[in-house]
Every structure is written in structure tokens, then in C-alpha cells.
């Protein structure tokens, strides 16, 4: 699923995002061929669009603004893959946080 891959790559590129979180039991993951993308679920919506939901582990940073930055990055990343018209709402859920070495 190209939207899932583009969305996850874009989200992971945002500073403060540590990794995708599959929910602990793989419920928040998308299989693309043999590859599994943890932390992204794409769902069909009305009108031929797809919502993209990201489930993430973040650093100890303010999460609301980080969520906005992730959403913007996903829209940009999916757009760069030529799929912007197919992208519906982008949900961002922080499931965990991690103290990063070197951060206060």
C-alpha cells in the first residue's frame, strides 16, 4: 500500500518521532507484500479516499504540536508520492514515549 509506506516514512522523518508502534500485538500495522509497516493503518473512505492513521512512540516533547508536524509531513510525503488526491484524514495517536539519551 503506497499511501501507508509514504505516510510512515514521512512521519518517521519528523524530529521527535522515535518509531512506529504496532500496538503491541500487531493490530496497528500494514502489510505491504512481505514487509510489515508497524504503526500505520490505512482505511478506505467514501469517495475513493483513504484515511491514514499513524500510531507512534515519541520522545518527551510537547505532543500536540508534534502531532500537527507529523500530519503536515504525511500530507507532504504522500503528495510527493503523487497520491495527495487519494489521502483523506490523517490521524496521529501517540501510544508511548521514550526518554532519549542526551535530552533533558
Amino acid at each position: 500500500m503506497r499511501i501507508a509506506a509514504a505516510a510512515l516514512v514521512a512521519a518517521l522523518g519528523v524530529a521527535g518521532v522515535v518509531r512506529g508502534h504496532d500496538g503491541g500485538d500487531g493490530r496497528y500495522a500494514t502489510a505491504v507484500g512481505e514487509e510489515v509497516l508497524p504503526g500505520v493503518v490505512v482505511a478506505a473512505q467514501r469517495g475513493g479516499r483513504y484515511s491514514a492513521d499513524l500510531y507512534l512512540t515519541a520522545a518527551l516533547v510537547p505532543l500536540r504540536p508534534l502531532g500537527d508536524r507529523v500530519r503536515e509531513a504525511v500530507v507532504r510525503g504522500v503528495g510527493a508520492a503523487g497520491l495527495e488526491q487519494a489521502l483523506g484524514p490523517v490521524g496521529v495517536t501517540f501510544l508511548s514515549v521514550e526518554k532519549q539519551v542526551g535530552h533533558p
Binding site: P89, G91, V92, F94
Partner: peptide, 8 residues
């Protein structure tokens, strides 16, 4: 407008 942010 573009989606929601949730914190577990």
C-alpha cells in the same frame, strides 16, 4: 480539518 491527534 485534516485529522485528529490523540494521546494514549
Amino acid at each position: 480539518e485534516r485529522g485528529t491527534t490523540s494521546i494514549d
